[in-house]
Nucleic acid binder design. Structure first.
Length: 279
DNA sequence: ACGAGCGCCTGTCGGC
DNA sequence: TGCCGACAGGCGCTCG
């Protein structure tokens, strides 16, 4: 489910403490339980439990959509994929149906990784780079300038939307924030990366950062059965709004499939460059 | 290099 | 009511 803003929201909540629970920083993991073994990308359940027991959470980080727990001697990375969620709960309550893994603390509560669709993954490794080493730039970092984006766009010849969602190209954008950024930048999702002008690239760079920052400011989006307090879903310009009026010009938002993903855009605000033939 | 198709999973929703 | 397909915030793989 989550994209960069949702992961950042979770990271902040776990780092600062929430709902009467303290920050996880400095806490010792006294036990780990895994209820769906494939949730663990590496190592095996037995090794995971053995290695993580007794380690202290030193820091909580994020890279793209990965949440990173820096522990005493290892790093644990979590990717929530489509339906994953993390929350704190008392040790004594009954296990919810979709809990895949829990970490227990001596303070009497646990961190639960709940993941209906079982796509989420957890890694325990010595070096986080072995998991996140191939990710593209971090979009909100100072080093990610419009010039960097420009050079990246020029180095590829690909449809804009799948390219922006490619985590090796740029880390953190998913289906929602890509559609939102492309609408803000007035670019068609199927436009080719090499057709983008330097000026359009500048606007796209700004739009990507704008939608991500607004998502974070609103604590992410809450959709369907997953509600964690964010309200960015109430401010979507195009995502999930096919048939509704474009906030800029009133034209009906269109929905097409691009790269096997639902794609929402305004056919008037986001025209395809002449020559290409797509609705 | 690029894009399409499929697999991985469970659940919800709308149409008939 | 029941069934059935479409669809869901992701990503890795294979195949042209």
């Amino acid at each position: 489910m989550p994209e960069l803003p949702e992961v950042e929201t979770i990271r902040n909540a776990l780092r600062e403490g929430q709902d009467g629970y303290p920050s996880l920083l400095g806490l010792k993991i006294i036990d780990a339980r895994v209820y769906w073994s494939r949730t663990l990308a590496t190592p095996t359940v037995e090794v995971f439990q053995d290695r993580i027991r007794g380690q202290i959470i030193e820091e909580l980080g994020r890279r793209g959509k990965y949440l990173i727990f820096y522990l005493s001697s290892d790093s644990m990375l979590i990717h929530l994929r489509m339906s994953g969620d993390l929350f704190l709960e008392p040790l004594n309550i009954e296990l919810a149906p979709h809990h895949r893994m829990t970490l227990e603390f001596q303070e009497g509560f646990r961190l639960a990784f709940n993941d209906t669709r079982k796509f989420g993954r957890v890694w325990l490794v010595e070096d986080p780079q072995t998991v996140i080493g191939d990710l593209g730039p971090e979009p909100l970092d100072a080093e990610f300038t419009s010039q960097v984006l420009w050079q990246l766009l020029q180095s590829k010849r690909r449809q804009l939307k799948p390219l922006l969602m490619d985590q090796k190209f740029l880390a953190g954008l998913g289906n929602i924030y890509t559609d939102e950024a492309l609408h803000m930048a007035k670019l068609h999702p199927l436009s080719n990366s090499q057709e983008i002008s330097r000026t359009q690239c500048e606007v796209l760079w700004h739009s990507i950062r704008q939608v991500l920052k607004e998502g974070i400011r609103r604590n992410g989006s809450s959709i369907d059965w997953v509600y964690r307090g964010g309200d960015f879903q109430n401010y979507f310009r195009v995502y999930g709004r096919s048939g509704a009026a474009c906030p800029e010009c009133g034209t009906a938002i269109k929905r097409i499939i691009v790269g096997q993903r639902s794609t929402h855009f305004c056919p008037r605000c986001q025209p395809l460059a002449a020559g290409a033939n797509v609705d």
